[in-house]
Amino acid sequence: MPPYALITGASSGLGLALAEALARQGRSLILVARQRDALETIALELTQRFGVEVLFRACDLGEPLRLSGFLLELEENQTRINLLVNCAGVRSHGHFLAQDWGQEQDLLELNVLALARLRHALGNSMAVQGGGQILNVASAAAFQPGPWMSSYAASKAFVLHFSEGLREELKQTGIRVSVLCPGPVRSPLRNTPRLERSAWPQRADEVALYTVRALAKNRALIIPGWRNRWLLRAGCLGPRWLRRKLAAWANRRYAPY
């Protein structure tokens, strides 16, 4: 059985683009998302186009019991995974106190807890195998507070710092950890006329190609696009009160909803 690259959130957007970029390299894939019909179509298409083995599993990773069942299935089948791409995520926008708590909890379950659990389970498997690679998808929003999308920005800040911490922890196990922090990406999560006009969105396939090349070089922090790299470096130099104000203005103006 060949080793697989497991990609979560693989039914659309950046997750789908990453799956295609890896299939183009000849990688065997396991695609995970909630939409079974979409996954089945994508798996067939990638197999036909690139001649690779593509498995899929419909699973809501934000449901702890379903995630447990999925991990148990991988263990029982002795599935070898040497690349984990944590791309699944959800977003919320608006005044925190006005949000439905159930939706906020779902965001934290998926963006934080499910990601950490997948890394723990598959990281242990990789350590036994002698190594592997993990890519976590954060966001440019991870570098500063995010008023009017506070839970989302905070969840991505967790992904960023968690990834950088584990990169150092896991070096001796042969596991390489990278974190992707894209700016706006044209996808179902961020696809509005205001965003298209004003925030230099990148195409998902462009971000995926840049990311796969950076993974081959074992980059710790992956930020596609020179504008994004410049803005993030410049933003980190300002005082935190100013960063909060600018983030609040941007999130109100370019909100996806």
Rank of each mutant, 00 (worst) to 15 (best):
C87D: 10
V90G: 08
R91C: 13
R91M: 15
S92W: 08
S92H: 14
S92G: 14
H93C: 14
G94P: 06
F96N: 06
F96I: 14
L97M: 11
D100K: 12
W101S: 13
Q103V: 11
Q103K: 15
L107I: 08
E109F: 07
E109I: 00
L110R: 00
N111G: 04
A114V: 02
A116L: 09
R117P: 01
R117T: 10
R119I: 12
A121L: 04
A121I: 08
L122R: 03
S125I: 04
M126A: 04
V128W: 09
V128F: 10
G131T: 05
Q133E: 13
L135A: 05
N136V: 03
N136Q: 07
N136H: 05
S139D: 04
A140V: 12
A141F: 04
A141K: 03
P145W: 11
P147S: 11
M149C: 14
S150P: 07
S151K: 04
Y152K: 08
Y152A: 06
Y152P: 02
A153S: 15
A154P: 05
S155A: 12
S155W: 02
K156E: 05
V159W: 01
L160N: 01
S163G: 07
E164K: 13
E164R: 15
R167I: 02
E169R: 14
K171D: 10
Q172W: 10
I175R: 00
R176W: 12
V177I: 14
S178F: 01
V179E: 00
R186G: 01
R190G: 07
T192F: 02
P193A: 12
R194Y: 08
R194L: 13
L195P: 01
L195D: 04
R197N: 07
S198D: 14
S198T: 11
E206I: 08
V207D: 00
